[in-house]
């Protein structure tokens, strides 16, 4: 029989000798950078385009959800109405001090809840939780809180973040749709999230600065503002996320900003106390 043989086939024909991590890192960083750039660009565009949406339109978008909310679900007691009225009055004064543009107005909603929080949302609506208000030592800190939220309304932050959320979400869904693995979606999603968080952090910093300026206009000084951040850092916020992942600037930075802002004012200013009915809610509950 003729001599046949199966010779040894050299290695490395079908398998790349390159280290798999090298390829992975190049791809991950490259695609991560592209994603970050896309999110950044879309976020900038959302912030720019929002100026073409009149505030009245934003308001009508929000009205439907708010009117049903307040009329059917929650009926405020007379005490709560008194608090809401007081908060609204203060908000109106602060809006004037912040030179809120014509046609833009703020509506404060008081929520009788333990949550240590307050936020601004579509249509100039500001939600204030009892939990945060009762922890505040004086009106100056409350004014800082309200001014911060009013500054968000002035920035049009709620509608910007809505538009940004939709645009960025769609873009990320389209980009990651090209991959055949849902896990690469996760990678892209996380990069997108981090990029947009950076954006909102910038907004928060701007709102802090604007709020301090408002206090300066209203009280003649911005002292006492740091009490708000001290309260926020003491509360249930003890579980602090790392800075990279946080929407709000970390508390020490915010307190430092207040101190820096107040640098020129050497004397200790007097704080305006909170009205009696607000003090009562906190003492009655403690």
């Amino acid at each position: 029989m003729t001599k046949y043989e199966n010779r040894r086939i050299p290695e490395g024909i079908n398998v790349s000798e390159e280290h798999p991590l090298k390829e992975f890192l190049i791809l991950a960083f490259g695609l991560g950078t592209i994603t970050a750039l896309v999110v950044l660009l879309l976020s900038l565009m959302a912030g720019w385009l929002v100026h073409f949406i009149p505030f009245s339109l934003e308001k009508s978008l929000a009205t439907s959800s708010f009117s049903t909310n307040t009329s059917s679900d929650v009926v405020l007691t007379s005490e709560q109405l008194e608090i809401e009225g007081y908060l609204q009055l203060l908000a109106n004064k602060l809006s004037a001090a912040q030179h809120l543009p014509e046609g833009m107005e703020v509506v404060v909603h008081y929520v009788d809840g333990d949550t240590v929080n307050a936020f601004a949302t579509l249509g100039g609506n500001i939600i204030m939780y009892r939990g945060l208000i009762e922890a505040l030592p004086h009106e100056n800190a409350l004014a800082m809180l309200l001014s911060h939220e009013i500054a968000h309304i002035k920035q049009r932050a709620p509608i910007i973040s809505l538009g940004r959320g939709v645009a960025v979400g769609l873009a990320l869904a389209s980009i990651s749709g090209f991959g055949d693995s849902s896990m690469s979606h996760q990678l892209i999603g996380n990069v997108g999230l981090l990029t947009s968080l950076t954006f909102s952090r910038h907004q928060e910093e701007q709102a802090d600065i604007e709020a301090l300026q408002t206090l300066e206009n209203y009280y003649g000084h911005a002292q006492g503002a740091e009490s708000l951040f001290e309260i926020l850092s003491e509360g249930d916020y003890a579980l602090k996320p790392p800075k990279l992942l946080s929407t709000h600037p970390i508390t020490e930075e915010r307190i430092n900003r207040v101190r820096h802002f107040n640098g020129s004012h050497v004397g200790r200013a007097s704080y305006k106390p909170l009205p009696k009915f607000l003090v009562n809610i906190s003492q009655g509950l403690d």
């Binding site: 079908n14 798999p20 390829e23 695609l31 980009i175 693995s181």
Partner: peptide
């Protein structure tokens, strides 16, 4: 493995040799 899957997922966005699968098939 999970790593190969992610690497291949990233590769499928830009195209090219899916080296992580090539070694698997080999």
């Amino acid at each position: 493995d999970y790593f190969k899957r992610i690497a291949a997922g990233l590769r499928s966005i830009v195209g090219g040799r899916v080296t992580t699968y090539e070694s698997l098939l080999e």
